[in-house]
Amino acid sequence: MSDHAAPATGAILVTGANGFVGRALVEHLLTSQPRPVIAAVRQADADLPPKASRRVAPALGPTAQWASALKGVECVVHAAARVHVMQDAVADPLQAFRQVNTAGTLALATQAAQAGVRRFVFISSIKVNGEQTLPGQAFTADQPPQPVDPYGVSKHEAEQGLLQVARETGMEVVIVRPVLVYGPGVGANVASMMRWLARGVPLPLGAIDNRRSLVSLANLVDFVALCVEHPCAANQVFLVSDGEDLSTTGLLRRMSRALGRRALLIPIPPACLALMARVLGKTPVAQRLLGSLQVDIEKNKQRLGWQPAVPVDVALQATARHFLELQRR
């Protein structure tokens, strides 16, 4: 057992607290934790859950000063980041990601350790492991990382730096690498899929037999909250998913049911789709739709006793309800 197994009393600071994951995490911690939860946000008027305390935080970067935000804090959950984008407009994407996700994270962690923070939970990315797996050959938390794109590289470098800070200072570090997150309020590719399905757009995605791990927002924040407290999470890396892998075709069908629609999926052979994507310069998009990316969460079960609490269909229904409510406004 850890020396820190006794119940903690200091505050939990959540960075990126008005983001998709951060806001849900603050809401979850407010209902599951007896100790104070502080939302670190860039603007004082940021939209937050009503009971959340707030502190204005600096922009993530190597020179950011966190002393005032860290007062009385025992655990930091770092969800703020420069997020992955499909078409980055900056001249040097790797440098831009490193400035925020690597140098900014390590500046915060170093100052947290100096301020006496006990534990630092880092929301990383499955992109640290790599971009795809062979069907049935899932990524594990402890295999050598193979990041490919600038975002994944910046997150991996941040992880390495955090583990070094842990060794030098004694502050506990927990690294959580989620797969694709979905849930009420999700944007990007998942929101686009729901729009297509809700409008009854025929999609040439009816014959894809890949396997992809996903994680609902509810399951992710439940796991992160466990990592805040569990003594056996200290200085460990975890992958997190719903524990059920879906094909792209299967996901679209189940999403359609959640939306109360009939999916119009045309069974085009994946090889033809890959060729068309290559001709159109959309190979990365095709890789996500056609390729596999699976993760093994056995470590979470064995080490922390965690099981995903929310089934995929229940999470998809919650996602669809929120989407349809927004469409009616």
Rank of each mutant, 00 (worst) to 15 (best):
Met86Leu: 14
Ser32Cys: 07
Ala46Asn: 12
Ala188Pro: 06
Val128Met: 03
Thr105Glu: 02
Ala112Gln: 06
Val41Pro: 13
Ala11Gln: 04
His28Arg: 13
Ala91Asp: 13
Thr283Glu: 15
Cys227Ser: 10
Asp142Leu: 09
Ile12Tyr: 12
Glu298Asp: 15
Cys232Tyr: 13
Gln236Ser: 08
Glu168Ser: 15
Ala8Met: 03
Pro150Arg: 06
Ala271Gln: 15
Thr140Phe: 11
Trp66Ser: 09
Pro270Lys: 15
Lys155Cys: 09
Arg328Asn: 10
Gln111Ser: 12
Asn300Asp: 07
Pro202Trp: 15
Leu252Thr: 01
Lys155His: 11
Leu48Gln: 10
His322Asn: 12
Phe238Thr: 06
Gln43Asp: 15
Arg257Asp: 15
Glu27Lys: 01
Gln146Trp: 01
Leu316Asn: 12
Gln137Leu: 13
Gly61Trp: 02
Ala79His: 00
Leu29Asp: 00
Val174Trp: 05
Leu29Pro: 00
Asn129Phe: 01
Leu304Ala: 07
Pro145Thr: 05
Ile175Arg: 05
Gln307Tyr: 12
Lys71Trp: 01
Glu172Lys: 07
Ala158Phe: 02
Arg261Asn: 00
Arg303Val: 13
Gly243Val: 03
Arg177Trp: 06
Pro7Ile: 00
Gly72Cys: 03
Ile123Phe: 05
Asn300Gly: 12
Ile268His: 00
Leu217Phe: 09
Ala225Pro: 10
Thr105Phe: 08
Gly250Cys: 10
Ile297Thr: 13
Ser2Phe: 10
Gln307Lys: 06
Cys272Arg: 14
Arg262Thr: 14
Thr283Asp: 04
Ala286Tyr: 09
Pro135Cys: 10
Ala44Lys: 11
Met171His: 07
Val117Cys: 06
Glu157Asp: 15
Gly250Asp: 10
Arg54Pro: 00
Ala69Ile: 00
Ala274Glu: 01
Leu220Val: 01
Leu326Gly: 13
Ala24Pro: 04
Val153Gly: 01
Thr133Phe: 05
Leu239Met: 08
Gln95Asp: 11
Arg329Phe: 03
Asp209Leu: 11
Ile123Leu: 15
Val215Arg: 08
Ala80Ser: 02
Ala107Gln: 12
Ser124Val: 04
Asn101Ser: 02
Gln317Phe: 07
Glu74Asp: 13
Val148His: 11
Lys282Ala: 14
Leu289Val: 02
Met276Asn: 03
Leu273Ala: 12
Pro147Glu: 08
Leu264Ile: 13
Arg177Asp: 00
Arg35Val: 05
Thr140Tyr: 10
Asp222Leu: 11
Gly250Lys: 04
Val73Tyr: 03
Val153Asp: 00
Cys75Trp: 07
Ile297Pro: 00
Ser213Ile: 08
Ser192Cys: 04
Asp245Met: 11
Leu273Ile: 08
Val295Trp: 02
Arg303Tyr: 07
Gly104Gln: 07
Glu131Thr: 11
Asn129Arg: 02
Arg254Pro: 05
Val215Lys: 03
Gly61Ala: 02
Gln143Leu: 06
Val237Cys: 14
Glu168Asp: 15
Val77Glu: 02
Leu220Pro: 03
Thr283Phe: 01
Leu214Arg: 03
Ser213Asn: 13
Pro50Glu: 11
Asn210Lys: 14
Val90Gln: 07
Pro58Gly: 15
Ala115Thr: 01
Pro93Glu: 01
Pro150Leu: 04
Gln236Ile: 05
Leu290Met: 04
Met194Thr: 03
Gln317Thr: 12
Asn210Gly: 03
